[in-house]
């Protein structure tokens, strides 16, 4: 696979391991530019799957793995459109990002999210597509969407339900609180804890171990234990689009975007 250096992410291949590095300031907010480059990446990823054994997704930004969807772009674009067009635009975005995330989720490669700092909303959902999450002790996980009158829209709840008990899923979704990496490890969300600044190194070491196993067997095992929750993912898009038409969403987005105080990421 040819190395790729985009505006929002980069990809390189080395020793049978692909590394997808997010690098869009302030904290890898996922908007149209990131989505377009992710689409390019998954095309290349599929081509590379015959050679590579593992994919690592990480961030090179100090702030964290990803703060989630680009709410400023969502708000600005939505305001420029009539209501019907807004929903169609959001639906199109969600369908595209679901296609990307589903391809990462079901890739025959073993996938590892190496996360640190803020891993919120859509960023958390991206991490959840991976087979393993390796977390820096300073990582925090959160689904803040209910604060905006929405549910997570990038497939997070179906994937979390696939992996964890319903109690912790309800806790995260219904309180909107963030949990630290130690707690996430205790509930089974995080596979391995890493020291501060060490998540990528631990992920590389894990990927090297994964590379020792037979490719076909590894892919078969993954298919067996990690089915895509297709129906729930489809339902999630419908619920999100329905909620998106509610006035509470526009006011919630406006509050976030126009906030000038120091803590828009706090409830």
């Amino acid at each position: 696979m040819k190395d790729f250096n985009g505006q929002t992410l980069s990809c390189r291949s080395q020793g049978g391991i692909l590394e997808l590095t997010l690098h869009r300031p302030a904290c890898n907010e996922i908007g149209s530019a990131t989505l377009a480059e992710m689409e390019r990446f998954v095309d290349a990823m599929d081509d590379a799957a015959g050679e590579a054994s593992a994919l690592i997704i990480c961030s090179s930004l100090k702030t964290g793995f990803s703060a989630g969807a680009d709410l400023r772009e969502l708000y600005t674009r939505s305001r420029e459109m009539p209501v019907e067009a807004r929903t169609a635009s959001v639906r199109d975005f969600l369908q595209r990002i679901h296609r990307v995330f589903n391809r990462i989720d079901s890739s025959p490669m073993t996938t590892v999210a190496a996360v640190h700092g803020v891993t919120f909303g859509g960023g958390f959902e991206l991490a959840l597509t991976c087979d393993l999450i390796i977390a820096d002790r300073m990582a925090r996980f959160c689904f803040p969407e209910l604060r905006l009158g929405l549910i997570p829209g990038f497939g997070g709840i179906p994937r979390l339900r696939r992996d964890l008990g319903n109690g912790i899923v309800r806790d995260l979704l219904l309180t909107g609180r963030s949990i630290n990496a130690v707690r996430a490890h205790a509930v089974g969300l995080v596979s391995q804890l890493a020291g501060e600044g060490e998540a990528l190194n631990v992920a590389r070491s894990t990927a090297a171990q994964i590379g020792k196993f037979d490719r076909a067997t590894r892919a078969t095992a993954k298919r067996f234990i990690k089915p895509l929750p297709v129906e729930q993912l489809t339902e999630e898009i419908e619920i999100f689009c329905r909620l998106f038409t509610e006035p509470a969403v526009e006011s919630g987005l406006r509050r976030f975007v126009e906030s000038t105080d120091a803590h828009p990421y706090l409830p």
Binding site: G117, R140, T175, R177, S178, N180, A262, Y265, L266, P267
Partner: peptide, 28 residues
Amino acid sequence: GIDSLQALDLLTRLEQRFGVELPDYELQ
């Protein structure tokens, strides 16, 4: 001189230091 992302970092360090979980809505 911190913003909300750094406040979350502080929150995590405090949780580790005191061995507690502090839901961030309690910081409202």
